[in-house]
């Protein structure tokens, strides 16, 4: 099959771009190879692991199963775009650092993008809803424990519930809730 190329116009991390892509390319390929946004990770390339998650028009997508040509006219955010111009971390990034939610770091960019969508949604997720919303991401290092805490705390802070955020269990064992029954 002969190669076919197409020009894609979109906004990436707030910047308008025009990019020639092979029509067979995934958005992951375009972001990594053409735009050098290497925070977008490849863990499976079939939409199973979530490492390549980016925000497209406000919603998280696995960019590995999203064709680059579909990005035409879209607004895309990757992890690189969350860091401020002076290198300052956004609150969700900082929470991942502070809560020990990062180990090897390979799943981190995708996780932070979905978390960013959650904390900016203005919605208060229950614990079960949070777990479900984050379950498109696989992590083998953390057991998700500290990631959960980072996201929940940041979500509560976004909702102005600062005191409640501080009460989210830290790595201590004093508060031990009665588990919820089967649903």
């Amino acid at each position: 099959m002969a190669k076919q190329y197409k020009v894609v116009h979109c906004t990436v991390n707030g910047k308008e771009i025009e990019q020639v892509v092979d029509v067979r390319s995934s958005l992951t390929d375009m972001l990594r190879n053409d735009l050098h946004l290497t925070s977008v990770k490849k863990g499976c390339e079939v939409g199973e692991c979530g490492a390549c998650t980016v925000i497209i028009n406000g919603e998280g997508f696995n960019s590995c199963i999203y064709l680059a040509v579909w990005a035409e006219g879209k607004e895309i955010w990757t992890l690189e775009g969350l860091t401020g111009p002076g290198g300052e971390l956004s609150d969700i990034q900082q929470a991942f650092v502070d809560e020990g939610a990062i180990q090897c770091g390979f799943c981190t960019p995708g996780f932070i993008m979905t978390s960013w969508e959650i904390v900016n949604s203005g919605k208060e997720y229950t614990d079960d809803e949070l777990r479900k919303a984050l379950s498109g991401h696989l992590c083998r290092c953390t057991g998700y424990e500290n990631i959960f805490r980072a996201v929940k705390k940041t979500m509560l802070r976004h909702l102005g519930k600062f005191e409640e955020a501080e009460l989210v269990n830290s790595q201590g064992i004093t508060e031990y809730p009665e588990p919820m029954p089967f649903k």
Binding site: T38, Q93, I102, I112
Partner: peptide, 21 residues
């Protein structure tokens, strides 16, 4: 002490380089 990982900041920024990067 529970100091945060020295590489956590760069990992949270997505600028840590793995082999493919």
């Amino acid at each position: 002490q529970a100091v945060t990982r020295l590489d956590a900041h760069d990992k949270a920024m997505g600028r840590i380089k793995y082999t493919d990067d």
